[in-house]
């Protein structure tokens, strides 16, 4: 019993330490956003590279996943709803499921698996090798040069890829199964636009902004906690992914309540 209480206490202290540290990291992120060096060429290059690694290289795999989900969603749900005479509700169901929930969620999960892991490993290695100290020794703010471009690219890539997901899932799903559906494309698009509300858009943008921030900031913060041993890198990866999946749940909950 004593052991259990001690373990719980340790967990609670570790969680509080994480939240305090992460809050300080977030404050430094916002402070760094006002640094004039953010508009200088070296920072642009880091941003563009990160966008390429996060948002462009993933496109083939991302398209396949989007089509597969589109087939399941549009091809599976729409005939079912038409069969039961609920074709008027097709739009609102697709908007709620695809735009409000599935697009940010699927994109976040895919980017987590591909880019967040890579960023954790990269920053952990840089810290272990003393490269972050090198950056500081050159009077360069690591927030401005290393972290902010990665975090902003996470937000940008999550928004663009989520929009691409919506297009591919709905249009791709419809086109592939058009021969099997008893509704026209015009009707499908019209009903989707009719079901579009400000709340949906707001939920989408809040989820994108929050999710995009967590996507890169949590791996970076976790990587910065590592020490100088190589063995700490896989531990940081594991811890970072665990924290990120909790963050995804929080983002989903926030989206649900809007």
């Amino acid at each position: 019993m004593k052991r259990l209480i001690m373990a719980l206490g340790q967990k609670a202290i570790a969680s509080i330490q994480f939240f305090i540290g992460y809050f300080a990291f977030t404050v430094s992120f916002f402070k760094g956003c006002f640094n004039p060096h953010i508009f200088y060429p070296s920072v642009h290059l880091v941003f563009l590279r990160q966008v390429y690694f996060t948002g462009v290289q993933i496109l083939p795999m991302f398209s396949v996943v989007s089509v597969a989900i589109g087939l399941t969603l549009v091809g599976g749900l729409t005939p079912f709803m038409v069969q039961f005479g609920a074709q008027d509700a097709v739009g609102s169901v697709l908007v709620t499921i695809t735009i409000k929930h599935l697009a940010p969620l699927v994109t976040m999960v895919l980017l987590t698996l591909r880019s967040s892991t890579a960023v954790t490993a990269e920053i952990s290695l840089m810290k272990m090798n003393g490269e972050i100290d090198t950056i500081k020794s050159l009077s360069i703010n690591p927030f401005v040069y290393l972290y902010i471009p990665r975090i902003v690219s996470g937000i940008v890539c999550l928004s663009v890829l989520s929009v691409i997901f919506i297009y591919i899932a709905i249009i791709g799903g419809y086109l592939i199964l058009s021969f099997n559906l008893n509704i026209s494309f015009d009707f499908l698009i019209g009903t989707i636009f009719d079901a579009f509300t400000i709340d949906t858009l707001l939920a989408f943008f809040i989820k994108i902004a929050l999710g995009g921030y967590f996507l890169m900031s949590i791996p970076i913060y976790t990587a910065l906690e590592t020490g100088n041993a190589v063995t700490e890198i896989p531990i940081a990866l594991l811890r970072g992914m665990q924290r990120l999946f909790y963050a995804i749940i929080i983002v989903e909950l926030v989206g649900t309540f809007i």
């Binding site: 200088y40 060429p41 360069i140």
Partner: peptide
């Protein structure tokens, strides 16, 4: 790196 971080000049 230091040159393009501290000064607004292209590569």
């Amino acid at each position: 790196l230091p040159l393009t971080y501290h000064h607004k000049i292209t590569y």
